[in-house]
Amino acid sequence: MIDVSNVRAGYGDGADILNGISLHAAGGEIVTILGPNGCGKSTLLKCIAGFLAPRAGTVAIDGEDVGAVPVHRKVRGYGVGFVPQTDNVFATLSVSENIRLGARHLPRAEREGRFDALMRQYPTLAAKQNRKASALSGGERQILSLVRALIAGPKILLLDEPSAGLSPLMMHEVFDAIAGIRDDTGMCIVMVEQNAFEALGIADRAYVLTLGTVAMEGRARDLLADPSMRELYLGGSVAG
């Protein structure tokens, strides 16, 4: 579904942040991208989403090179949903307005049908649908952001650190929701995370980046058992 091949990318006239990264993600799986701060995780996700065009290499969706397609066209034309790390709700709009915006290109009846279904699925949001999004807690905002992406019926979901700033309890709730989305919809989910072990707990496969390159990749359960992962996330290196 998503094929990233030898991508180099960076911001403005600056040096490359991504130095020839390749990645594959298929439908029905959660692929998590891990790594220390500054390794290029979010940059890679922005490249896939369309916020940043690759300087070299290709980003393909279902075999079509979409590296130069901007994010707003990817959302509508290629079924991509993107959930940013921070500022992930429209704070001045109500919860229901936030959600409906995600499906504003759909016919009204279809939009309202999906809205009602999602409200049944996420009763916490349903209870607060007329409140401003700014009144929600961090976890509720993250769920709202997910729901806004889901209402469009994406086939690919890109999540940038969905657990950022959440309490452990809320983090589990958000990860459970993400795993549920994969199980219920067969969606392709690519998730950048700092909480490596929590992310590996729900992911099918993972890529570990260092300095803009893929240092490790494999099945999530294998990486969880890999001692070098513990070294990396307890301050060691990935050497060897």
Binding site: A49, F51, P70, V71, H72, R73, V75, R76, F82, V83, P84, D87, N88, V89, F90, A91, T92, L93, E97, R100, L101, G102, R104, H105, R148, A152
Partner: peptide, 24 residues
């Protein structure tokens, strides 16, 4: 209107608006 909501959304958060499929 949907256009008005898109306008308010873009004014609030341009990057998120683009990520929601709005041509900012």
């Amino acid at each position: 209107t949907t256009l008005g909501r898109s306008m308010r959304a873009t004014a609030t958060n341009r990057v998120l608006a683009a990520a929601t499929g709005i041509d900012a």
